[in-house]
Write a protein that binds this DNA or RNA. Structure first.
Lengths: 337, 337
DNA sequence: CTGAAAGCGCTAACAT
DNA sequence: ATGTTAGCGCTTTCAG
């Protein structure tokens, strides 16, 4: 039988209200009384029941995190940022994988609401009407991390995906390339897939370069699809001399495809990836890539969520974190960068 | 004001006990009554309060997971295995990072117990008396994943670390190497550090090969330490011709150190890593490595935990999953393998 | 098969 | 500064 607050009260010769006060750090307790209670707690080995507290106070100090796949390097880095800040603010995390499946996402939202989480952190490519519907029935604060909803209704922390892709493409253009390929993410991912593709096209357009469908491949973000796509590009009569890949894994796959054909990177083909996962520094040539601050996105998103949960004033509901390009060895050196 | 079970009862014209029964799938409800209740639930958009349920039933269908660092590829893969099985058995996961810090581990155990988790899954290098002490005060089932305690008191799911290191070293010996180096993990990690080192030494001993301290480097599991350690080895008067690294990252660092000096892998130096993280297939040469089934370890550990939580009979409290060596391109081909 | 009622362990007014 | 009391929303005997 576990020790309850009532046992402590009896042991200390005070009421349970007083015990509750000292446990919760309420200053309205005489120091001597506090000490008596503390001693009793110590002696009995009392451990407050957070479930009972949650029921009575209607706050669980727990937040739900819905993530597509924790085993991906991108999301696990993000999750670490979330967790660190959560810990800092005394929250715990219920972590759920959605595999990008709408149905599962909705079901998870529901389960988390049943568990009375104080807030929700959502990662996932696409936000649909269904999500809003589920969320609306329980009005708990929700923040999107590394994504946004189309209408900007929900608070979100992410980077400017369009600009990032534009910058990467432009970097390749500046290096004098005329035939620049792209390996995109799935088009079902509005931001990581579609928007990056748009950024690529716009950069070509602005530079007066022709858009060539042959230089576009649809990838899955995975290594294998980069390998495959680049292999196909190389079979073209006029293969690309530079590639922008929407993920680092695909970029590395692309590099290997080039190398496997006996060519070299960056001499024959320059490659820029996206995200800057740890992997990018652990391959040769080391990968030049758009750095997306995953950890920070998670951390800032969690911090934002704490503000909503505490009813603090927040000025910007949508925060765009800065991105930049880290030039390493898969692109040639240029003086001005 | 959220809808409660009481509201549903009134709407359906039954008692709250009956509503509780249908919500919990209790068969002792007349089909017609069940339907009435279901309709009311639907109409009101009732969502059961899991916190209240937890308080009343003393079961939260939540398990605590203490992991050193979710952003590491090794642990995030493990976490995915845990989560998948947890979902399958209707449990949710509270995920916490310990950074291998004893103090934080103990504090997390405490927090999770306060939250009344039904079980605990623990990952971390070292299990000390303190852990048992904390755990003992609340008697909830605990399973270790990818580690074991020294005395085998706690249920655990892992591989035979000694044998794995022995096998890897032996594989190198069979290839005719006389000077085989090892890049170990930190010795503060009993299994991943110390035991693997022991396995290495035993393999040398059994093969009648001399043990040379110069061929031992203490790494941190990280890429950089592999790079560094191998760089040092290569400066030796008589450098090693083969290396076993206690992690894939270090193995890849070692490969790059060799390559950076203008030598090649596996021609000049053969390398075997440990774990088989996704990374191993995304480098050139692709890494030969001891495969540790991370996902399975997580999955089996979670499955085992569910058995304890349901008071099911379990035969083996310690389960050793099989390991094997995957030969790729960082070792030379051999006919018999 | 259904209902009534007693908690689960704690917080939060409200008194004193 | 401390105690009293009424819930929080649900499960679970125990009756009927």
């Amino acid at each position: 039988m576990p020790i309850t607050i009532y046992d402590v009260a009896r042991e200390a010769g005070v009421s349970m209200a007083t015990v509750s006060r000292v446990v919760n750090g309420n200053p309205n307790v005489k120091p001597l009384t506090r000490k008596k209670v503390m001693t009793a707690i110590e002696r009995l080995g009392y451990r407050p029941n957070a479930v009972a507290r949650g029921l009575a106070s209607k706050r669980t100090t727990t937040v739900g995190v819905i993530i597509p796949d924790i085993s991906s390097q991108f999301f696990s880095e993000l999750a670490r940022g979330i967790e660190d800040i959560a810990t800092m603010y005394k929250y715990n995390i219920i972590l759920c994988n959605s595999d990008h499946r709408l149905e599962k996402e909705l079901q998870l939202i529901n389960t988390l609401l049943e568990k009375q989480v104080d807030g929700l952190l959502f990662m996932g490519a696409e936000i649909k009407e269904d999500h809003f519907h589920s969320l609306k029935t329980a009005s708990i604060p929700t923040v999107l991390a590394a994504t946004r909803d189309p209408e900007g209704k929900l608070p979100a922390v992410t980077i400017d995906h369009f600009q990032a892709a534009y910058d990467a493409t432009q970097a390749l253009i500046r290096r004098g390339h005329k035939r620049i390929a792209i390996i995109t993410g799935p088009m079902s991912y509005p931001l990581e897939g579609l928007v990056r593709f748009e950024g690529y096209k716009k950069a070509l357009l602005d530079a007066g370069l022709p858009y060539d469908e042959q230089l576009v491949a649809n990838g899955s973000f995975r290594y294998e699809s980069g390998l495959q796509s680049m292999g196909d590009f190389m079979k073209l009569a006029e293969p690309p001399t530079a590639v922008f890949a929407a993920s680092d894994e695909m970029a590395i796959g692309a590099i290997h495809a080039v190398q496997d054909l006996g060519h070299s990177v960056p001499e024959d083909v320059e490659v820029i990836g996206h995200d800057n996962v740890r992997l990018a520094e652990m391959v040769r040539p080391r990968l030049s890539t758009v750095v997306q601050p995953m950890y920070d996105i998670g951390a800032v998103a969690m911090r934002l969520l704490t503000k909503y949960m505490n009813n603090e004033q927040v000025e910007d509901h949508i925060v765009l974190l800065p991105h930049r390009i880290e030039y390493r060895q898969s692109t040639k050196e240029m003086a001005e960068e």
